[in-house]
Amino acid sequence: MELVPDHGGVGVALIAASSTLQISIIVSCVLFIFRIRGAKYLAYAQIPFRLLLLTPSISIILIAAHFTPGYSIIYLVLIIISEAVKGWSLWKYAGTPTS
């Protein structure tokens, strides 16, 4: 694996964090589908990692970023806004589901 010699431990840590985030997104989706209480808290816990790894909750932001190269500040602002909206919607609408 060429990652460690080329990028060091930071590259490995970022890949591990990104992979863990992707798995937790799938797990939270399943938890939300089955209305399990922990889904809301897992989704809250994902917000800082989504911001750190630039993984927006609204996938269309990735498409917009692809077609507007050089606008990284706008991309970052859109990610922050999407995560703020996600946090607010979790607080407002993801009350206490059954089970």
Rank of each mutant, 00 (worst) to 15 (best):
T20S: 14
I80G: 13
L14F: 14
I25F: 05
I61Y: 07
A39R: 05
W88L: 02
F49C: 06
S82C: 12
V12W: 06
L76K: 01
K40C: 07
I23P: 05
L51I: 13
R35S: 11
A17W: 13
I74T: 13
I15P: 06
S82N: 10
I80M: 10
R50N: 09
K92P: 04
I73P: 00
Q46A: 05
K86F: 15
Q46N: 08
A17E: 07
F49I: 01
G8R: 03
L42I: 08
K86D: 15
P5W: 11
L76P: 04
V30G: 03
V85G: 06
I47L: 11
I74M: 13
P48T: 08
R37G: 03
V12H: 02
A17H: 12
F32I: 05
A84D: 04
R35K: 15
T20A: 15
L90C: 09
Y71R: 14
I81A: 04
S57A: 08
P97D: 12
R50Y: 13
I79G: 07
F34E: 08
Q22F: 10
G95L: 15
V10C: 03
I79R: 09
V77W: 09
V27K: 02
G87V: 00
S57N: 00
F32K: 00
L51S: 09
S82F: 02
L31Q: 04
H66W: 12
K40P: 05
I26T: 11
P97I: 10
G11I: 02
I36Q: 02
L31F: 01
S59F: 05
C29P: 01
A13W: 12
L90I: 06
S59I: 03
I61K: 08
T20N: 14
Y93P: 11
W88C: 03
V10G: 11
V30P: 02
E2D: 06
H66G: 13
I81H: 01
H7M: 07
E83F: 00
F67N: 04
Y41S: 09
F67W: 00
L90Y: 14
S82T: 15
V30H: 05
R50I: 07
W91R: 10
L90Q: 06
H7K: 00
R37K: 09
R37V: 00
L53V: 09
K40N: 03
G87P: 07
S18D: 15
L51V: 13
I33W: 05
G9Q: 03
A43Y: 03
A45D: 05
L54Q: 14
I26Y: 05
V30T: 04
L31K: 02
I73E: 09
